[in-house]
Each structure stands twice: as C-alpha cells, then as structure tokens.
C-alpha cells in the first residue's frame, strides 16, 4: 500500500480488454501465477478480488453472482453463498459458517487500472 506509484505500475499486469468482459459475469485471470476474479459491473466499474473462496478453499469466486447489499456492490460465492464486498473485500454474510482453517473470511482486493480500454491488475496495491 505504501509502494511508490512507479513501482506499483511496473508490477501491474495487462489481463484483457474491457470489451472481453460481460457486465455482471465475472472472469478468472492468472496474474503472476496468482488466481484473481474480475468483474465488470453495470455502472462500468471494474473490480478485482482473489479468486480463492475462503469458505470452501476452491478457486471459484469469478463464477459467483454479483449484486448489492445496501449501496455496496457484492459477489456471492457459488459454493456456500457467502457474500463479500467488491469494494473492500469484507465478508458481509457468513451464512453462519467459518472459513477453512488458515483462511481469513475477508477477501484481498486487487487494484484495477483501466487504460484506454485495457484492464491492468496490480497485485502490489493489495488491500
């Protein structure tokens, strides 16, 4: 988070173009060997979180359903239906379950940069 901007941008990876994304249908991408989930929402914003679902241990979040809780845009895990904020990764609905041992309930959110229709993901800017 404290990384200087130039370092951060040199760590960013070009994964696809916005036209490759369908609104509300997530995709998975490999960024430096790590699996991430990317979502284009109806308002044109693009969000990126870890693809690993902490409650099942499977890499499936890109295949969940997008939505909202109050004002917060969300993603629901396709396996056990936990709901996470796409803005800060907080687990908003645990379904009374705990994450798999060794996993935190909240998601890591990755920084997305849009540059002339290109989608860049920056793991150095992790929150």
């Amino acid at each position: 988070m404290t990384a200087a901007p130039d370092v951060a941008s040199s760590a960013a990876t070009l994964v696809c173009r916005v036209e490759d994304l369908t609104p509300d249908l997530g995709v998975a991408a490999l960024v430096g060997g790590e699996q991430v989930a990317i979502f284009l929402l109806g308002d044109g914003s693009v969000h990126c979180v870890q693809n690993l679902d902490p409650f099942s241990g499977a890499y499936v979040l890109s295949r969940g359903i997008t939505g909202s809780r109050g004002e917060v845009p969300t993603i629901a895990s396709p396996l056990y239906k936990q709901v996470f904020s796409l803005v800060d990764g907080t687990c908003l609905v645990t379904m009374d379950k705990s994450p798999k041992p060794g996993h935190a309930p909240d998601l890591v959110v990755h920084t997305v940069r849009l540059d002339n229709g290109a989608v860049w993901i920056d793991l150095a800017g992790d929150r």
Partner: peptide, 20 residues
C-alpha cells in the same frame, strides 16, 4: 442478460463440485 442471473450450476449448465 440471463447468464449473469443464473446460479453457477445453471450458468455453466453443470453442477459445481467442492473443488470447483
């Protein structure tokens, strides 16, 4: 716009298992 409405099973027209 239906694909984005479906639960993952309907969206991929297959049943997701525990490992994805």
């Amino acid at each position: 716009d239906r694909a984005a409405l479906q639960d993952t099973n309907d969206r991929m027209m297959a049943n997701m298992q525990k490992d994805g």
